[in-house]
Amino acid sequence: MSSPAALRRSPLALLVVLFLGLCFTGTAYAALQPSAAPGTSAATMSAEDVAAGKKLFLGNCATCHGTNGEGVDPIGPSLVGAGAAAVDFQVSTGRMPLPAPGVQADRNASQVKFSEEEISQLAAYVDSLGPGPDVPAAEYTDLQGADIAAGGAAYRTNCAMCHNSSGTGGALTRGKYAPTLMGVEPQHIYEAMLTGPQSMPVFNDNNLTPQDKENIIAFLKNMEEGGNSYGGAGIGSYGPAGDALFVWTLGIGTLIALAVWIGRKAA
């Protein structure tokens, strides 16, 4: 018989703890959120993954989020309960690890530092710290059977005030901004709604059901793939500002140039 301490250290024990923890998490989560999406559960991740994730975490994240993910005030929030979805969103969009402190972390595909496997390991580790939303199941991001029009209505009520009705983003207070949603992976949009990164509020599954979220994503993808391809160049979809810029520069400029031509004597 090994001592209890030795047992605690064994990988098996970790697995047992994790399993129990997950059972509790799952129950609690299911109890709190009856219609929660059955995601790619962290349960499929092995203890090795969690351990690997911890290693990555200590090397890349612990400075700001603490060695046990408990957070370092004021530079990094606690990640206990942040969940796998938050990790996947932050890390695979290149927002985290934050290259430099600023008002806001920017999406930057060139800054994604980890492979998909590493990200899922990191996610498994963070998920092991405390229960949180999981990475969404593929059925909610494949957009099969989604209702684009219903998605548009939900988008305009819940999202357009920050992200613009065309999904091109908008300004928030003090230099913060809601980023454009064009060209963003469906999974990341889903995760953002689920976890509320940075200034964005959380839209849990009681507020916007997984189907609602899928509808919203489908609406955005439609906007990206031709939903707005009518009538010519969209000048950034910034509404009257783009129109004004055009009409006051190229528009009136062309007409004035022609007027000058008309007023000039021929050679």
């Binding site: 548009g152 305009r156 009520t157 357009a160 005030m161 009705s165 908008g170 979809s237 129109d243």
Partner: peptide
Amino acid sequence: VQINPVWVFGPYDPTQVTAGSQ
């Protein structure tokens, strides 16, 4: 050059608003 793409804005609903309203 597209102008005033009303289909993007959606129908008026007093509870809704879009960023960049001018």
